[in-house]
Simulated scan of single mutants.
Amino acid sequence: MPLINDIPQLHGIYVFNDTKNLPEESIKKWGKIKSVHTNISDLYKALQSGIKQFNQDSIAVSFLTVTEMVSTDNLNQLEPTFMYTQIFKDIFLDMQHSEKAIKQFIAHCRNNNSLSPTIIDRFEKEYHAELAIWWYTFPSNIYSILNYGLRTLDADTIITVGFFICHLHRQIQELHEQQINSYGRKPFLVYRGQGLMKSDFEKLLKAKGGLMSFNNLLSTSKDREVSLEFAECASIKPHSLSILFIMSIDPCLKSTPFRVWVGVYKAY
């Protein structure tokens, strides 16, 4: 147990025990022990929350300073992740995806145990493009597969879920166009709380006045307190800082569609 804090691949430990008798001092000493549970239901909820927090903090961020934005003489100075993300976006959103792409994704999930057999069978029977948002929010691990591909820029994973990225983007775009008049013409604030590596935070400071790009689909909240909870959870991680992003959204700008979530589209 004393070695667990030194294993970088190990994010957290959740203990299931008949009696909650793990000393409090041990939990504090071994920082990667997140919680101790005496019933499966509480353990499951804690794991879900931990996975959500991990995904929240793992989204890759690219930064462009004012100088880099102004100068186009040397594109090699731009962050590779920023350029690759833009290239992938342009390619996949313009592609036409057939039923074959969906079948290949299902076969990939079966062969690699990416999803539970029950979820795979359900996806195979029920999925269509109009349910992309529903499946993205459904606790099925599709969210994690997609985010992993975008976070690591793993070409094989991105190609495998390319049809889903395209369907998801188009559905968000359609719903955005339907809702655009309901937003009014005034900007509004949304919040996002997450952990940010200290090295990335230093880049953020240097990029003041420049561009910051999240290389993923970005989830935010209009509730500041909800986002603060995510930020506070990240404060216990070594080499990480808790960040609360406050973003002003101008509904009149249509360069990037967004969607205000409502219960009917969110899977529970």
Rank of each mutant, 00 (worst) to 15 (best):
L196W: 05
L168Y: 02
L153K: 14
T157C: 11
I165G: 10
Q171E: 11
R185M: 08
Y191F: 14
N147C: 02
I159L: 04
I159Q: 14
L196D: 00
G195A: 13
G195P: 05
I172H: 00
I165P: 01
I145W: 10
G184T: 08
L196F: 07
Y148V: 02
Q173A: 07
K203D: 09
H167T: 03
V161H: 08
L153V: 08
K206S: 10
F164K: 02
L205Y: 12
K203N: 15
R151M: 10
R151L: 03
S199K: 15
F188D: 13
Q178V: 04
L204G: 01
R170N: 01
L175W: 11
I180A: 13
E202D: 09
R151G: 12
E202Y: 13
C166S: 03
T160A: 10
Y143S: 12
F201S: 12
Y143D: 11
Q194F: 09
K203G: 05
E177G: 04
E202N: 12
D200N: 12
D156R: 15
R192Q: 01
E202F: 09
L175R: 10
L153D: 06
H176F: 14
R170W: 00
Y191R: 06
K186W: 09
R170S: 02
L189N: 09
I172P: 01
L168D: 07
L153Y: 13
G162H: 00
E202L: 12
D154L: 07
R185E: 07
L204R: 15
Q178T: 09
G193S: 01
P187A: 03
N181M: 08
Y143H: 09
H176Q: 03
L204P: 07
I159E: 14
D154F: 07
A155H: 15
L204Q: 12
T160L: 07
D200L: 13
F163C: 00
H167A: 09
I158R: 14
Q179N: 14
F188S: 07
L204Y: 12
K206C: 00
Y191I: 05
S199A: 15
V190S: 10
I180G: 03
H169C: 02
L153Q: 13
G195I: 05
N181C: 04
E177Y: 09
H176R: 09
I172Q: 00
E174H: 04
N147W: 00
G149Y: 04
R185F: 04
Y183K: 01
F163E: 01
T160R: 13
Y148W: 06
L205E: 11
L150F: 01
Q171P: 04
E174M: 08
K198I: 15
N181I: 11
K186M: 14
Q171W: 02
I180N: 04
Y143A: 01
E177S: 06
E177N: 06
G184M: 05
F163S: 03
L204N: 13
C166R: 08
R185L: 08
N181S: 12
Y191A: 03
E177I: 01
I142W: 03
Q178K: 15
K198L: 15
L146V: 11
L146T: 10
A207H: 01
L175H: 06
